[in-house]
């Protein structure tokens, strides 16, 4: 049995806890973090929009005004991804595999669940009440497209109280 745990910023500890509870002893646990390309991409774009600054071309830029912040962001994101996975592995306290991917987040997660038996992810959205929307765009795509069973967990304690009343029926 292989359990993929999607480590996303802000909500991952609940996913790791759920994996501890629900993954069978001896199951292979994969901690997955995906770094989106859009964040460095936005910085690349902002830098490219500064016309006439005489930026040197190429990846290895000098410091100062000629250095593309997007490239710095790619390095920082790689570091951050490593640290997150490390923290998640420590919280899990079981043997596991750490996988760091880069790309479009939702597509990389779906691709990483190929052949898995379970995907654990957390809901996004407002934590103070139940519903109405519990998934961000990436989470929505993953739930819709994952080919394996999906375990959707609350990032913290679920709020008490009944769900909102049902809409009136049309007769």
């Amino acid at each position: 049995m292989a359990v993929v745990v999607w480590i996303a910023e802000g909500t991952w500890p609940a996913c790791v806890e759920a994996a501890r509870v629900h993954a069978a002893q001896g199951a292979e646990i994969v901690l997955l973090h995906v770094t989106g390309t859009e964040v460095p991409g936005v910085a690349h774009g902002a830098f490219a929009g500064l016309l006439g600054r005489g930026h040197p071309k190429g990846q290895h830029q000098s410091g100062g005004w000629g250095s593309d912040p997007g490239t710095r962001l790619e390095d920082l994101a790689a570091d951050s991804s490593r640290q997150l996975l490390q923290a998640a592995a420590e919280l899990l306290g079981r043997p596991c595999v750490q996988v760091a991917r880069t790309g479009r987040i939702e597509r990389e997660v779906v691709a990483a669940t190929e052949g898995a038996d379970l995907l654990v992810l957390a809901r996004d959205g407002d934590r103070t009440h139940l519903g109405p929307h519990s998934l961000g765009p990436a989470g929505r795509f993953v739930v819709d497209h994952a080919a394996c069973p999906v375990l959707l967990v609350w990032p913290g304690a679920a709020p008490a109280g009944p769900p909102p009343p049902a809409p009136p029926r049309h007769r």
Binding site: A8, E9, G10, V39, R72, L73, L76, D79, S80, Q83
Partner: peptide, 15 residues
């Protein structure tokens, strides 16, 4: 921009 990214990462927030 790089400082803001590093700050979000340090806080564990989505950047």
């Amino acid at each position: 921009t790089p400082v803001v990214f590093a700050t979000a990462a340090r806080l564990g927030a989505r950047p």
